[in-house]
């Protein structure tokens, strides 16, 4: 089997066009997951009755499901239930009008929420009791304590795990091609379908993912260093 550099470069060019799609899916999912993950982690940290055990139960179940199944499940469930729901809400759209990127974002947001809730729970739990006591004793409200004390302490510790998750989300977004989203991976496959040059296409895809992850890791390290300078000093 011969390897054509030219074909590979062509695939690279075609696929690169969809880098924004992939990044969009990954970052939006990370953002949504960040909000819900933090909320769930706080509910569990403050041990809020009933909600806390409900979240614990849901997360235990979802944690064990492969992301492929979550994507396919999200697609299947929404294809079944979207139309009746839209109708009952009086919307004028049907499932056919829904952009498949939404489905991908929904599925990856579930993945991100689960992982981030665990990441935040761990880092929040590692904050020493004295920090909570001090915040309460100077008269901060719970919300001020969370926003001004807990999150600034937890975030730098969580950052490497968050950046790891982002990399995983980018890779997982390639599975979104299963629900007809055209992302980097799907675009490369489509270009390969025209000339049956799959090896070149896959190499091109690998290069793009590798470059993206390299960039993310570098910027995360940079952010981590600048954020952690204080904290590291305080733990030396």
């Amino acid at each position: 089997m011969s390897f054509s550099l030219e074909t590979m470069l062509h695939a690279l060019k075609v696929a690169s066009v969809y880098i924004p799609t992939t990044l969009f899916i990954a970052f939006v999912s990370l953002f949504i997951g960040g909000i819900f993950g933090l909320l769930i982690a706080l509910v569990r940290l403050y041990n809020i009755k009933i909600l806390s055990s409900i979240f614990k139960f849901i997360i235990t179940i979802l944690k064990g499901i492969p992301i492929v199944l979550i994507i396919l499940g999200t697609f299947l469930l929404s294809s079944q239930f979207f139309n009746p729901l839209a109708k009952s809400l009086g919307w004028r759209i049907t499932f056919k009008d829904v952009n498949m990127i939404t489905i991908a974002v929904l599925a990856l947001s579930i993945m991100a929420t689960i992982q981030l809730s665990e990441i935040f729970r761990g880092t929040l739990a590692s904050i020493k009791k004295g920090q909570y006591d001090a915040a309460k004793s100077i008269g901060l409200t719970t919300f001020q304590t969370i926003r001004r004390i807990l999150i600034p302490l937890a975030f730098p510790v969580a950052l490497p795990m968050i950046s790891n998750l982002l990399i995983n989300l980018i890779k997982a977004s390639s599975l979104a091609s299963m629900v007809a989203v055209v992302d980097i991976f799907a675009a490369a496959k489509i270009s390969a379908n025209q000339n049956y040059r799959f090896l070149e296409a896959y190499v091109a895809v690998a290069i793009i993912y590798w470059a993206l992850n390299f960039l993310i890791e570098k910027s995360s390290n940079f952010l981590e260093n600048s954020l952690n300078r204080k904290l590291r000093r305080s733990f030396q």
Partner: peptide
């Protein structure tokens, strides 16, 4: 009550960051 009382802790409990 918290805002009218202040505590000095045995292990200082300063904010590390």
């Amino acid at each position: 009550i918290r805002r009218q009382t202040a505590m000095v802790f045995q292990n200082y409990a300063l904010f590390n960051n």
